[in-house]
């Protein structure tokens, strides 16, 4: 199993913990995919300690400056991601997880489908399949 954690902020601990804690099976490969605006994931990773605490292998990758949603989807296809986890940073007045432009673009992308689960701090797209992608 392979998972992508989209990292939008260095203060994303709750969503990463939720993703790692609730959906990862031991030995899973995790790709921390950071936005270009997010610098230096060292302290975040060190604090969460994915290998020790969650028994997962991980790598850190970065989206290019001026990235588009296709960059995220291409990356997901390339690594064969079964899951994409996106942090929830804000709730609406009625308690819904607020959706930003990037999340909307991924969720409504023509070529990505699967199951969408809204957690406490993370939106989890799982059982992913990629139609029309090579």
């Amino acid at each position: 199993m392979t998972m992508i954690l989209v990292v939008k902020s260095v203060d994303q601990h709750p969503s990463i913990r939720e993703a790692l804690g609730s959906v990862v099976t031991p030995g899973e490969t995790v790709y921390f995919l950071r936005l270009p605006t997010v610098r230096c994931l060292g302290p975040l990773i060190q604090e969460i300690s994915p290998m020790v605490e969650y028994d997962v292998e991980y790598t850190i990758d970065c989206l290019p400056e001026g990235y588009e949603v296709s960059d995220v989807v291409d990356f997901a296809v390339e690594v064969g991601a079964d899951r994409i986890c996106i942090g929830i940073f804000e709730r609406t007045l009625t308690g819904k997880a607020r959706i930003d432009d990037l999340t909307q673009s991924i969720v409504l992308h023509d070529h990505v489908s699967g199951d969408l689960v809204v957690g406490e701090d993370t939106i989890i797209l799982e059982n992913l399949s990629y139609e029309g992608e090579e």
Partner: peptide
Amino acid sequence: LELVGTTQ
């Protein structure tokens, strides 16, 4: 269309 939010 702009998605604002979602919940389970």
